[in-house]
């Protein structure tokens, strides 16, 4: 807490300049010191209260997640007769049997694979298409550019609900309804406004001289895009890719409508498990935990990009 200490010291040793100039040297030095002892004490006390309060908040935040994790490691009978917290004192009830059973369940493994098949192509497609468009909006000249971009900004908040029915009908006619490519296409389209917005704004910050120089050297636009803009824009592209990946990995609504039972991702498979059988914690808990390990790994591996992506996406 160096900043606070500096603030405290500043108050003591550097009284406001005019006062220092007016007052005699020794007269005012006693009381600030005594006040600083008192204020340090109150600060120490209040910091204790803050620490305790935040510790309670942290505990509240941690408990539900711990509940899922421990439940996923307990047998069906254990979960139906006692609470997961009994495992804290009796760790012998924990086993990975639920997970082995889950991985032998072909429906679940297929759904896990489908999740990958949906989220990876979507992420790649969104990043590529949005980077192309973002570059055009930032650095190419064509009539109506600013108005079209304003339209994209307007589309940022369009709820997917508006698209569900018409696109379902359209995909039905095209034979895409129920398939993985259909789910991917829908995700790509609704991911684009934010992606274009983010990348266009980032690309627009590239110094003009850099591009002019590249153009002078006779580089075509494609060359400038791949050799200059993409490398410079890597942080934004990374944030976008992470954010888009998580968004699609975690989606349930779009896949619930556009994926049939062969194409359904893990989220949809788990929710149908839930609807059909009620509370079968021995599948739901490990399934949910499995589905959140990938996002958590991504989160920890790319914390900084993730936070930036979320922040930049806050208009969505």
């Amino acid at each position: 807490m160096t900043s606070h200490d500096t603030v405290a010291k500043g108050t003591v040793t550097q009284p406001p300049a005019p006062a220092a100039a007016d007052a005699g040297a020794g007269s005012s030095s006693g009381s600030p010191t005594r006040r600083s002892v008192a204020s340090r004490l109150t600060r120490w006390l209040s910091r204790g209260v803050v620490q305790a309060f935040l510790a309670v908040i942290a505990l509240i935040w941690l408990t539900p997640a711990l509940g899922l994790f421990l439940s996923s490691l307990r047998t069906e009978e254990a979960n139906s007769t006692s609470g997961w917290w009994t495992a804290l004192t009796g760790p012998s009830q924990l086993s990975i049997d639920n997970y082995t059973a889950l991985l032998e369940n072909s429906g679940i493994t297929q759904a896990l694979w489908n999740t990958v098949l949906i989220s990876v192509p979507t992420t790649v497609a969104v990043v590529v298409i949005a980077a192309l468009a973002g570059y055009a909006f930032a650095w190419l000249e064509f009539p109506g550019r600013d108005w079209i971009f304003l339209l994209v900004v307007g589309l940022l908040v369009v709820p997917v609900q508006v698209g569900l029915l018409p696109v379902a009908e359209m995909f039905g006619a095209l034979g895409l309804f129920g398939t993985i490519p259909g789910v991917v296409l829908f995700h790509v389209a609704y991911g684009l406004p934010f992606a274009i917005f983010l990348l266009r704004n980032y690309f627009a910050e590239i110094p003009r001289e850099m591009l002019e120089a590249a153009r002078m050297d006779g580089g075509g636009e494609w060359r400038i895009f791949t050799r200059l803009v993409l490398p410079v824009g890597r942080p934004a592209v990374a944030s976008l890719a992470i954010f888009q990946f998580l968004w699609v990995w975690n989606d349930m609504l779009v896949a619930l409508i556009f994926a049939d039972s062969d194409a359904q991702p893990l989220t949809v498979a788990l929710q149908s498990e839930m609807r059909q059988f009620g509370s079968n914690i021995e599948i739901l808990a490990p399934g949910a935990f499995l589905s959140l390990t990938v996002p958590l790994l991504v989160f920890f591996a790319f914390q900084k990009h993730f936070v930036q992506g979320v922040m930049a996406g806050s208009v969505k």
């Binding site: 997640a65 998580l246 975690n250 349930m252 929710q271 739901l284 808990a285 589905s291 958590l296 991504v298």
Partner: peptide, 11 residues
């Protein structure tokens, strides 16, 4: 923030 609403819902 990183996990799905489905997982949060089951939690």
């Amino acid at each position: 923030m990183a996990i799905s609403f489905l997982a949060a819902g089951i939690i």
